[in-house]
Amino acid sequence: MEYRTVDEEFFEELEDVLIAADVGVNTVMELTDELREEALRQNIKKPKDLQPLISEKLAQLLIKSEEETSLNMQPDGELTVFLFVGVNGVGKTTTIGKMAHQLKAEGKKVMLAAGDTFRAGAIEQLEEWGKRSGVDVIKQQAGSDPAAVMYDAVQSAKSKGADVLLCDTAGRLQNKVNLMNELEKVKRVLTREIPSAPHEVLLVLDATTGQNALSQAKTFGEATDVTGIILTKLDGTAKGGIVMAIRNDLDIPVKYVGLGEGLDDLQKFDPDQYVHGLFADVIEEAE
């Protein structure tokens, strides 16, 4: 009996920790119910003994195989195209800068497409990232048609023999139907020029975002067939736990995480490390 009460308290605390990490109530309830059963089945009495089980379970939910975090690169000699999408201010442009730097370091010839022709200073921002990472930016004037920019960029990347083209788009809220249509058109242009493109559609999510991220993943997913998530701003105190609900409901994997504003602050998603981060506070308390 004594252990039971400890367990229940533990589960309540666990619920709080997960909710505080933005995992989302429904997913939290599902997870803790499963864990309650598991604890009963395996006759686990001490919270300490349950901890590894929890971590393992969460990590398994997040990543089902190693390949999920890798980027879909085309064979040598063929152009790989990645499209970056997401709501306003999440870190699309910055992530493109970081990824360009990484791919270049791997010896790839990288080019950037300035597909945000709307927001003030967006083209200049991408150009600055181009300078920092030492790659070329294909652009048109502010206010021009983003689909036309993409067409241009693909032609240019092909003719210059680029390996990878990273396409920036303007931030847009998922409930803006006309802007989502515009994004579909941008994607269609890429597919028309290269039938297998875009080879990744990367949804950039800000880790500080709450439950709305689920709606973002759903709507952007429907519009553009998102292939992976990049979770930015994990260098703060926000945990971005909503990716767990997204995985649970929509099965979209996290591929990369953003850990700062510098060129080197982009890392492959590591589920074990991520889950450890989720519980860092609880584990510290318990120790």
């Binding site: 909710i19 505080a20 990490a21 933005d22 709501v87 201010g89 800000d206 500080t208 975002t209 709450g210 439950q211 709305n212 991220a213 703060g236 105190t237 926000a238 945990k239 909503i242």
Partner: peptide, 12 residues
Amino acid sequence: VDAMTGQDAVNV
């Protein structure tokens, strides 16, 4: 403050 912010809004 971004209206989409989750639980971390209080810390911020």
